[in-house]
């Protein structure tokens, strides 16, 4: 797979490029073009868009959230419909579309980047950026413990439900936050203390550097790609800033 051959730094440059476009472009057509490019990149590098299928629902929900906000708060354009204090203006829909496109690009690019490499590769990338290994290795720790803690939170909720805690409606859920959150917090603090002790007793932080079982080696095409992407950002910035000078 072509994606695996790329250095994480190249992927990071791509991610920054996508974020830059998502935040700087304002027209729906341009944002749409960037999104298509983003998707095409996935298709070319991974050979399928299977990964993105599941995200369609998430994007729809995200869009719904933006639409609701726009319908309530947008005051631009012509008043189309009014019901009490609720007013819907003509600009609500175009603004929703660009909003959805921007957040979708950010989301897709984030997904692309964070699923494109292993935790170990991200750690090695941070080390190449001169981040001390004691900090860089926390990436792997986060990936390892996220699912464990999620499962644990479900067990804690179960435990409190058997003691009579109700979770039947929103009000119950709000009332249940503290009795479920506090054991979760105490347990997490206890767990993190144990993990830290286990790590220290295995020599974590003993010296400034350590041996990793793999290394990153930047290739010529990575350098070329990173340079190209940085140049695109630079040209775009110059193009935008020139009229201001």
């Amino acid at each position: 797979m072509a994606l695996a051959k790329l250095d994480p730094r190249t992927k990071l440059a791509w991610y920054i490029l996508m974020l830059y476009f998502a935040l700087s472009l304002q027209s729906a057509a341009r944002l749409g073009f960037v999104l298509v490019v983003c998707l095409l990149a996935s298709l070319i590098l991974t050979g399928s868009l299977k990964l993105h299928k599941v995200m369609v629902v998430i994007v729809l929900l995200l869009g719904l959230q933006i639409l609701v906000v726009q319908l309530i708060f947008c005051r631009q354009g012509v008043l189309l419909w009014q019901w009490g204090i609720l007013k819907i203006y003509s600009e609500a829909l175009p603004l929703t579309i660009t909003g959805i496109l921007k957040s979708t690009i950010i989301f897709y690019a984030s997904m692309q980047f964070f699923t494109s490499a292993s935790a170990q590769e991200f750690t090695l990338m941070l080390i190449k950026f001169k981040i001390p290994y004691r900090f860089a290795m926390l990436v792997g720790l986060a990936v390892r413990f996220l699912p464990l803690l999620k499962t644990e939170y479900v067990s804690i909720i179960d435990s409190q439900r058997t003691r009579g805690l109700k979770m039947e409606n929103v009000w119950d859920e709000i009332k249940a936050i503290l009795p479920t959150f506090l054991p979760f917090l105490y347990r997490a603090v206890r767990r993190s203390t144990e993990i830290a002790l286990a790590m220290e007793l295995k020599g974590y932080g003993r010296s400034a550097s350590r041996t990793f079982s793999s290394d990153l080696e930047i290739k010529g095409y990575d350098v070329a790609l990173i340079t190209m992407m940085l140049l695109v950002i630079c040209f775009s910035l110059v193009y935008r800033l020139l009229p201001l000078l």
């Binding site: 959230q65 906000v69 720790l141 413990f145 803690l149 959150f181 917090l185 603090v189 203390t193 830290a196």
Partner: peptide
């Protein structure tokens, strides 16, 4: 190390609780 590991573990707790409260917010007032 205790602080560094704690930051990650409590950071995950932070994330999970944000998801829980976010879901309740979505039901009450998005």
């Amino acid at each position: 190390t205790k602080a560094l590991v704690g930051s990650v573990i409590i950071g995950i707790v932070f994330l999970i609780m944000s998801q829980v409260t976010g879901r309740i917010d979505d039901l009450l007032d998005p």
